[in-house]
Design a binder for these strands. Structure first.
Lengths: 253, 253
DNA sequence: AAGTGGTCTAGACCACGTG
DNA sequence: ACGTGGTCTAGACCACTTG
């Protein structure tokens, strides 16, 4: 180590800043504490505000910070674990399912969902909207598409309103035997309506979980659930969905 | 619907741009096609380059675009499905596992991993590095921490090198009976070394999958796998990991 | 009204890949 | 050498929350 390698590959300022701030968060700040405002921080580090913001954006993406317009930037608590894909609530709306039904209406699903449900291009299905709140904070919004053929009993109670109707659809689903399930997780950005429900701005990063439910040899329901990527860690597995360790998990950065 | 609501809540320019570009990608471009460069595009839409870039960033995050410094911006193919958490390859390195062993060394794991493995704070474990490539493109990098007590046979062949040593650790793992597994998915940003492996810049969005492997009543291994969030859709479920539908899945945006 | 984060501009220079 | 995307600046104004 004779010659100290100074900057053969100089890293970007915002990346270095991210590292410095990250370490400061670990050692000098506590959860919930308010950081100095962006203009002050930028001045303190001798960079333009845009550069500082780039570093803050990274940290927010990683769930270390929470920024709110008009309020300020605070140190975020560790991400909360949210159980998905565990056996305990095979059908949506079953026991131990914390989702809140919002409403249900007939809708023509997007093309991808229609293909999975094997419905016609302009054929309406039940659309159940639900939301998930943990520790008083909105965490996820779900669109659950249910083929009309799967819940034939619903024609009779067609007149029920909002959340009651949503509960009726979910109740009918429980009567079917679930043969299998298949989920996919990908990164997306919140649409305007999702953003409002999740208390974020449009474009905020979200984890989109798409789940197909199989019964009677076909796909009877498709769920598209949108989770706040900054505050959530999605857990899968055989442990029943309980938090085994509330400690922060190893991070990629 | 008498008065058409013009702009009660004017959406940001970059968001509107994102929508316009997104529609253009659907109708006027084909996968792999090169877009005009950022300066031209910005001029064409009458916005500053920074604003245009904000829109492109969104689209890249959503897996619609691929940008490469020195080259240009191209239309990305639909995200590829990558099977994780399916029964078929219970232990890492089993049959039907496409991961490539890179090397294996003794390392002191990060605190979170050490806690899960119930090792001492400064105690070394086996660290196996693996990478996953699909369709010629690097897709994921994994750090697999294996408790030394779980694979006692390895002491004898301690001298083997790189990938051979990695394979040896994986081979020993197969001899244990897997009792359970537990995974979590969260959003992260690529560290410098991950970024290099994944052919991205530092800070690129990644999906971090943390998996604990249980055997003999305790956690014997912990895997931290880092997937490119722009190109991957992680699939879970009972379908054996095959792509049921190669069509694009319903998107959140 | 004051202070915060969010958006936007018009420029400059740098790092990288390709010809 | 050139063209690309990536970084950075110094400013302005807007949207929002709070006292």
């Amino acid at each position: 180590m004779g010659t100290t390698q100074l900057e053969t590959v100089p890293e970007p300022k915002y990346w270095h800043l991210r590292t410095v701030l990250s370490e400061a968060l670990d050692t000098e700040f506590t959860v919930g504490e308010i950081l100095p405002n962006e203009r002050d921080l930028a001045a303190r580090f001798g960079v333009a505000r845009a550069t500082l913001r780039q570093a803050l954006e990274q940290l927010e993406l990683e769930g270390r910070l929470q920024r709110r317009r008009g309020v300020g930037t605070t140190v975020a608590p560790p991400r909360m674990g949210v159980a998905v894909g565990t056996e305990q609530h095979a059908w949506p709306g079953g026991a131990g399912d914390d989702w809140q039904p919002v409403d249900a209406t007939p809708e023509v699903p997007p093309a991808g969902v229609a293909a999975a449900l094997e419905t016609g291009a302009d054929e309406a299905v039940h659309l159940v909207r639900r939301s998930l709140t943990t520790h008083g904070q909105p965490v996820a919004a779900e669109l659950l598409y249910v083929a009309v053929g799967a819940v034939p009993e619903l024609a009779a109670i067609d007149t029920s309103a909002g959340a009651a109707r949503a509960r009726a659809v979910l109740r009918e689903l429980q009567r079917l035997e679930l043969e299998g399930r298949e989920s996919a997780v990908e990164l997306g950005s919140a649409r305007a309506d999702d953003a409002r429900q999740l208390d974020r701005l449009p474009g905020a990063p979200v984890l989109v979980v798409t789940t197909r439910y199989f019964a009677g040899g076909r796909t009877v329901a498709v769920s598209v659930a949108t989770y706040r990527a900054d505050t959530c860690r999605l857990t899968f597995g055989d442990s029943g969905g309980v938090e085994v360790h509330p400690d922060p998990q190893p991070q990629a950065s």
